[in-house]
Write a protein that binds this DNA or RNA. Structure first.
Length: 500
RNA sequence: CGCGGGAUAGAGCAAUUGGCAGCUCGUCGGGCCCAUAACCCGAAGGUUCCCGGUUCGAGUCCGGGUCCCGCAACCA
């Protein structure tokens, strides 16, 4: 039976269009699961949309449409990223799905049965000017920056609370037992510090009369769940929890990919919730950074927001995937700049992989009659290459994976220059040994590039007449798979040169 | 003394446990003609933010300082 692998992204909130930062998360997640599939694993890859809460409800009201219709529209927009970015997710969960709501309620009941949910007065900070509830971080010197003349009013309201404070010890234990629970390590340090500083119980419900757009609290029809509580449960409800126990057991615990703004929610709150419900902790949490635009924070007012749809239309899906995975530091914030994008694209895809592919296939055509020559020795040590490749993927270091790949391409180019096959061919010397090394290396490269550039890699494989089934498992990584006499077809140019 | 990240060649980034400071792009010089005017070789370019300490040896460890950037809890 195939080994199982489960990975989920966070669910974007449907109050804005997808931005490049979310595209990064999706692409990282997609590269990971494609990599795991190469290893021969059976994968569940989950994403979806988070659709409850006050902001959504209010926005739909403003637009004068039904809230569910509003959510449907946005969910469709996020779902369209699948094609745009060539994503291979298997599940797309929406928190308004009936099954998810039932699961969230069941989850609540378990935490409640465990004594971790209780009622308490909650002070809401309210700005009369905005007619909105405010959070502390929205206030400046305790006042609403938009309405300094009014004092913030405190409204008391009874809410359900989650006993977060009870899980401090257990969370710290989890962090110390599993040093790679959160990657990169400095994020684990960050969350540990936070938990060590003491935890406060948090509110997990809202009064239904004020905010009806949420999952009803079991046994109390005057409250709905606060979005966080319901949304986090999607990571397991998508697996059919609670009733499909077999599927849940097969895939949970899973790997979670999230942005640095989600560190607490994923690695502390959600973990505490799981502990409370008596479920296993997540397997691992990978935290990525944010993307700046031309060196500045993206913001609507600066007008420098990068829209993934625009860049994909301009450059294509694979180049965008390649830039996001390879040109940004995997553990930190990174910058999206047009100049750098074009440099990176030209250097590594056009001049690198694309040109090398063209070189090799042409030489096979010219000097070997379009057929694979006799098998020869592996001079590049592909086994060691795969070792480094696995190691880099294992630590979510996508930039390192890309560096490995680029350096393999460079080695091939250097070897060609060194051997000067065109000269030898003229002198009547056999160059079959070199040609085999090159074309077999190209096969390895195509497989290794596949998780990052699925479409381009597929094109190379097509040229080599290698089928999709032949790229999985250990046997695909062996040296000498291409058999003598098999045809090779030179295809279209892989990466077009940018016009300057 | 709220928490955390960062500062390394013109730009963007790397440097397992301390051990000759590297990579990509760009610049300059040469080579090559299989390839998408691509590719290869060589060169120039660094006081690793500053001050002090530990050490045979510090980008890396310790102390102090400066400057950027996130977060600061119910803001997805």
């Amino acid at each position: 039976m195939k080994e199982k692998y489960y990975l989920t992204t966070t669910l974007p909130y449907v109050n804005a269009d997808p931005h490049i930062g979310f595209a990064l998360e999706m692409i990282q997640a997609d590269a990971l699961v494609r990599y795991e599939r190469l290893l021969g694993k059976e994968v569940v890859f989950n994403t979806g949309t988070d659709e409850h809460g006050l902001k959504i409800h209010r926005k739909a009201e403003e637009m004068g449409i039904d809230t569910q219709d509003y959510c449907d529209q946005y969910a469709a927009r996020f779902h369209s990223l699948r094609e745009l970015l060539n994503l291979s997710y298997t599940n797309f969960i929406r928190t308004t799905d009936p099954h998810h709501k039932q699961a969230a309620q069941e989850f609540w009941k378990r935490c409640d049965a465990n004594g971790d949910i209780y009622k308490k007065n909650y002070q809401v900070k309210y700005c009369v000017g905005c007619e909105l509830e405010k959070t502390d971080s929205e206030l400046v010197d305790g006042k609403c920056p938009l309405h300094i003349k009014y004092d913030i009013e405190l409204i008391e309201e009874e809410n359900y609370f989650f006993r977060f404070s009870a899980f401090q010890e257990k969370l710290l234990q989890l962090y110390s037992e599993r040093p790679d629970f959160v990657v990169p390590a400095h994020r684990l340090d960050e969350i540990r510090k936070f938990v060590e500083g003491g935890l406060q119980d948090f509110s997990i419900s809202r009064l239904k009369e004020k905010m009806p757009w949420g999952v009803p609290v079991p046994g109390d029809d005057t409250h709905v769940m606060y979005v966080w509580f319901d949304a986090l449960v999607n990571y397991i409800s998508t697996l059919g929890w609670p009733e499909d126990e077999e599927n849940f057991r097969a895939y949970w615990p899973g790997v979670q990919v999230a942005g640095k703004d989600n560190l607490r929610q994923q690695s502390a709150m959600w973990q505490a919730m799981l502990l409370s419900a008596g479920l296993e902790s997540s397997k691992q949490i990978f935290i990525h950074g944010f993307i700046t635009s031309e060196g500045q924070k993206m913001s609507k007012s600066l007008g420098n927001v990068v829209n993934p749809v625009d860049v994909v239309e301009k450059y294509g899906t694979d180049p965008v995937r390649f830039y996001l995975l390879g040109a940004l530091p995997s553990y930190e914030d990174g910058d999206f700049s047009t100049r750098r994008f074009e440099e990176f694209y030209t250097a590594h895809l056009v001049n690198g992989l694309g040109n090398l592919t063209s070189r090799i296939l042409t030489m096979i055509e010219k000097y070997s009659d379009g057929k694979i020559p006799e098998k020869s020795e592996d001079i590049f040590d592909v086994r060691a290459f795969w070792g480094r490749y696995d190691k880099s993927f294992g630590k979510f270091s996508f930039d390192e994976v890309v560096r490995e790949l680029n350096s393999f391409v460079a080695k091939c180019d250097a070897k060609i220059s060194e051997e000067k096959p065109w000269e030898k061919a003229k002198n009547g010397e056999s160059i079959d040994a070199l040609l085999y090394v090159l074309v077999e290396s190209l096969r390895h490269l195509a497989i290794a590039f596949f998780p990052l550039l699925p479409e381009s890699a597929e094109n190379i494989l097509k040229s080599l007449h290698i089928s999709h089934e032949q790229i999985q498992g250990e046997q695909a990584r062996a040296w000498g798979v291409l058999a003598k006499g098999n045809e090779v077809t030179k295809g279209e140019i892989l990466f077009k040169r940018l016009e300057s």
